[in-house]
Amino acid sequence: MSFTLDAKLEEQIHDFIVRALREDVGEGDHTSLACIPADDRSTARLLVKDPGIIAGLAIAERIFRHVDPDAELKINTEDGKTMSYGDIAFEVTCNTQALLKAERLVLNTMQRMSGIATLSNRFVFEVEDMPVKILDTRKTTPNLRFIEKWAVRLGGCHNYRDGLYDRIMLKDNHIDACGGITAAIQQVTAYQKEKQLNLPITIEVRNLVELYEVLGIGKVDRIMLDNFELPILAEAVAVVNKRFETEASGGVNIHTVRKIAQTGVNFISVGALTHSAVSLDLSLKVVK
């Protein structure tokens, strides 16, 4: 199996691999150079030691072929699939020095991605019978956002904005620094017109008073209801009455997400998908 990815993602992966190997290998893997013959080849298997969603196979394939263009991989599953304890995700045969050089990078990446995908999938399971979308946030590891957001998608959740550049989001600090909700919306509207932009606009509200102010102005696409208690959240959704998209945020966890969804919000943003996911236990073992 070989994974086909778009050009932008291929470029991001290549840059990630180069930087990560430079960080880890430096001037050379002296341990392997000292005790492994340069022309030796080995086979290793990726063993799943926790049940969950596997993620990162496409990156693992590219890491091995980066360190050894002649690497041969037998991949037994697909990214985003459920794996059980004892399953073998793939088998790789390549130069042994290259294999040992790539081992930790492959494991670190796949364990992190699989942990995020697994947690994302748990959130999806909680609301799978409801018309709501679970979103990630910008609470990601610097320089690893594209990988972590990819894992979110593999787990069945949805990406919000990729960064500050592809959506306008007026949060509490923007509103307070700008002088209030009305001023913030007016300035954003003028800015978009001046710059000939048409970015979707989300505005955060902290209470019903702010919600009514937004409803009086309009000119936004989505209203983020931040840290609302459940009864107030349900009231707010009813007040909006589908005139704008609604989003719940703030302190969402696996135990509360279904009750939040039952209020009728369109979206629930969950920072925990990326900032609180626990890595899935995987190991890469050379076949003796």
Rank of each mutant, 00 (worst) to 15 (best):
L99K: 08
Q97V: 13
K101I: 13
S84M: 14
E103A: 10
L99N: 10
L107V: 08
K81Q: 15
R104I: 10
T93E: 07
L105W: 03
T93P: 05
V106L: 08
F90G: 00
L99R: 11
E103I: 11
Q97P: 03
T96G: 06
E91W: 00
G86R: 03
K81F: 13
G80C: 11
T82P: 12
G86N: 05
A89W: 00
N95M: 05
N108Q: 12
E91F: 00
G80Y: 08
T82A: 14
G80I: 10
T82I: 14
A102V: 09
T96F: 03
Y85D: 14
T93I: 06
T82S: 14
E103R: 14
Q97C: 10
F90T: 01
N108R: 11
I88P: 00
A98R: 05
K101N: 13
M83P: 00
L99S: 12
F90N: 01
N108E: 11
D79T: 06
L99C: 11
A98F: 04
V106H: 05
S84I: 10
A98L: 08
D87R: 01
C94K: 00
D87Y: 01
L107H: 06
S84F: 13
L99D: 09
A89M: 02
R104P: 08
V92I: 12
T93F: 04
N108M: 11
K81D: 13
V92Y: 04
I88W: 00
K81P: 04
F90C: 08
A89N: 01
K101F: 05
A102T: 09
N108W: 08
M83L: 12
Y85C: 14
N108H: 10
Q97D: 08
L107Y: 07
Q97W: 06
I88K: 02
M83R: 06
F90I: 03
G86Y: 03
M83E: 05
I88N: 01
T93D: 07
K101W: 03
I88L: 05
G80K: 09
V92D: 02
L107M: 11
Q97N: 12
D79I: 05
T93W: 04
V92L: 06
L105F: 09
F90M: 13
A98I: 05
Y85T: 15
N95C: 07
K81E: 15
G80R: 09
G80Q: 09
N95W: 02
L100N: 10
M83S: 06
N95K: 06
Q97F: 05
L100I: 09
D79E: 12
D79C: 07
A89C: 06
E91H: 01
C94Q: 04
C94D: 02
L105P: 03
K81N: 14
G86M: 05
A98V: 07
L105D: 03
G80D: 06
L100K: 08
D87G: 00
D79Y: 06
Q97T: 11
V92G: 04
K81I: 11
M83C: 11
G86V: 03
E91T: 10
T82M: 15
L107A: 11
M83A: 10
K81G: 07
T93N: 08
K81A: 14
A98P: 02
G86F: 04
M83V: 13
V92R: 01
K101T: 15
V92K: 02
A98C: 10
D87K: 01
A102K: 09
E91Y: 00
A89Q: 01
